[in-house]
Write a protein that binds this DNA or RNA. Structure first.
Lengths: 158, 158
DNA sequence: TGCTAAGCTGACGTTCACGTAAGGATTAGT
DNA sequence: ACTAATCCTTACGTGAACGTCAGCTTAGCA
């Protein structure tokens, strides 16, 4: 049962960069300003080289990446700078995938995969930590709820 | 197995309001300014009536409440206004507990407990929702990690 | 009673994450 | 080629959540 290479639909590399900023904004639940701002602070690649003044154009992969940024931001409550740190991963990922596709050197491929794995591990650690904290909070709240319910019972019995 | 009334150490009502703002700030990992600000926007009761210009003084219960505010803020990423809404609960809780202690009317007690229960339920719903979202995120990240690991295996086998 | 540390009340400053408006350029459709 | 819609850059505005500074008062102690 050896893993077949690339059975996946190649999510984004293949999709053409044909969307403009307004469309992307709608698809991601943001605004053009927000997308430009993310680019401004280095969270987004900037649509790869583009002559100053011309329109930005995006691919489906870009949309996915923005969605994930928003998600992480909302769920983890990170600042955009912290996200930038964490997603040194994501912004590198596009490049990594591209280089991965293009190189034939297995040693290099291994290195790239290893790097990717590390990035994902970072995110996982953060998410799991957060889940753990929230679980503790939930337990505490549950106990409080139980306490109150108990008292209510006591009142009903009397 | 009827529940005894008030077996708990009566967390705060009994503790004297003897701490000043600096100490409270350290204990809660905040600053005096932050605490004053929270009071300003109505998140904190304001140390109950206090002659203008005199020092604020706090109890251990206040410290606990502030700690919880910070915790909810950080963990859920809520704005202070949202927290204010959610903690209409907490700020009311002190009053509720006091009134609960003082009244002998079982009907009133039942009402107060019921109210308290509702507040806690709100918080629980929020926390659980957040945990669910984060769990989905974790699952997705895990799968990604697995994919990458799989590819690494494939490379090693070759 | 006098000293000093800490606190008090304004009031203005700051950072983040965008919103908004101005004035001009680009692009898709006819 | 023309037009309307969208986009571009630049720049200033905004709300939240405090930081910071000034000038003065209070509280605890010798």
């Amino acid at each position: 049962m050896t893993a077949t290479l690339e059975p996946e639909p190649l999510p984004d590399e293949s999709s053409p960069r044909t969307m403009r900023i307004g469309e992307v904004a709608e698809l991601t639940g943001t605004t053009p300003r927000t997308i430009r701002y993310y680019e401004e602070i280095g969270l987004l690649s900037g649509g790869t080289e583009r002559e100053l003044g011309k329109h930005r154009c995006y691919s489906q992969g870009d949309v996915d990446r923005i969605k994930e940024i928003v998600r992480l931001k909302d769920l983890l409550g990170l600042s955009l700078e912290q996200l930038s740190q964490l997603l040194e991963a994501e912004s590198a990922r596009a490049d990594i995938r591209r280089e991965y596709q293009e190189t034939d050197d297995p040693e290099r491929q291994r290195a790239l995969l290893h790097q990717s794995s590390g990035h994902i591990a970072n995110q996982l650690a953060l998410v799991r930590g957060r889940i753990a904290e929230l679980s503790r909070l939930e337990a505490e709240l549950s106990e409080r709820a139980a306490r109150v319910a108990e008292k209510l019972d006591a009142l009903s019995d009397s």
